[in-house]
Structure formats: structure tokens, C-alpha cells
Amino acid sequence: MKKTFAVLAVLALAALTGPSTAASPSLKPFERGSWREVLRAHAGRPTLIHFWGVTCGPCKIELPQLGKFMADHPEIDVVTISADLVPNLSTATQAMLDKAGLAGAENFIFNDGYAERLRFEVDPSWQGDIPRTMLVTRDGAIETIEGSAEISDLDKWSQAQVRPH
């Protein structure tokens, strides 16, 4: 038994050290402080931040629509955050993002077993329901859409963002 673990540990080490230098993974870990960092990194630019998860039925329908939205709106930064709390789901998450045309977005996946704390950092009143979309204006004002967003609403919002102030 111990031997098996040792072999697994070596394999794990190889997995960590091997390909990581070739290219940085598309999926970034979303951890403590990541939320502040996302807001900081996109400060001054209109940004759509979408929370979703691989087992969420409505998310599966909405994700390709967001992929199209991103293609149609290069002026809007698009960030996705997989907010399911799941072991070993990065592959499925990446596959769904790729299929939805969102591989080029900035994509995160929850990477802290203490999901309550991650959610609290985003919005203390958020209880984990997904999908959830947060629209951040240039001046940092945030509008939250609970559940699936209407793409027409997103279009309207993005048009408002490009108007001269």
C-alpha cells in the first residue's frame, strides 16, 4: 500500500514539474485574494465576470452564448470562474470552455476547499447559486445578474460601456 502511494507521489511530482514549463495552464486557480486581483487587473475596463459549473444545467446552455458574446464584443474583458467545488474536474471545465468558444477568456477554477470563504470574498450574500454574472463598469460599479443572463441585456450593457463619457 505504502509503495503504491510512493509511486503515485513520484508521478504527481512529475506531473507538476514536467509540462508546467511548456505553457502556463489556461485555467487559473481561484484562491484567497484572487477576486481582489481580478478586479485590480481589469480596473478601468468594462468586464463581464461569469460564475458557472460543469454540472449546472442552465450553465451548459448559457456558456456557448457567452462565447458568442465574447467574439462579438472584443471591447469587453470576459472572465469565467468555475465555482463548483469539485475534485478532478479541471479537464471537464476546460473542455466545456473550449467547446463554448471561451478558451480565449481569462478562465479560473475554484481552488480552495473552503468555498464559503471564496464566495464571501466575491459577495458576502452569495450562497453559491450558479450561473451568476457580474458586470463591472470602467469606474468599478458592479451589477450582478442571478441565474442565466439574457444576452440582449448583456449587449445593451456593453453598448452603454463604449459610449463616450
Binding site: A12, A15, L16, G18, P19, S20, A22, A23, P25, S26, L27, P29, E31, L85, V86, P87, N88, L89, S90, T91, Q94, D98, A103, G104, A105, E106, I109, F110, N111, D112, G113, Y114, A115
Partner: peptide, 29 residues
């Protein structure tokens, strides 16, 4: 980013393994 996505697609096998390792640190167990 799109080009990077393409590159990642081509490298999907090792990246998948790596991504899974990353995620295990976030386990709720």
C-alpha cells in the same frame, strides 16, 4: 490568448494531468 488556447489544445493530455493536480489542493476533504 486564442493562440495560447490552441497551443494548450494541442498539449491537452499533459495539461489535463497538471490541471488535475492543481485542483487537488482545493479539495474539501
Amino acid at each position: 490568448s486564442s493562440l495560447l488556447g490552441l497551443a494548450i489544445g494541442l498539449l491537452s493530455a499533459p495539461i489535463a494531468a497538471q490541471a488535475q493536480m492543481v485542483h487537488q489542493h482545493g479539495s474539501d476533504a
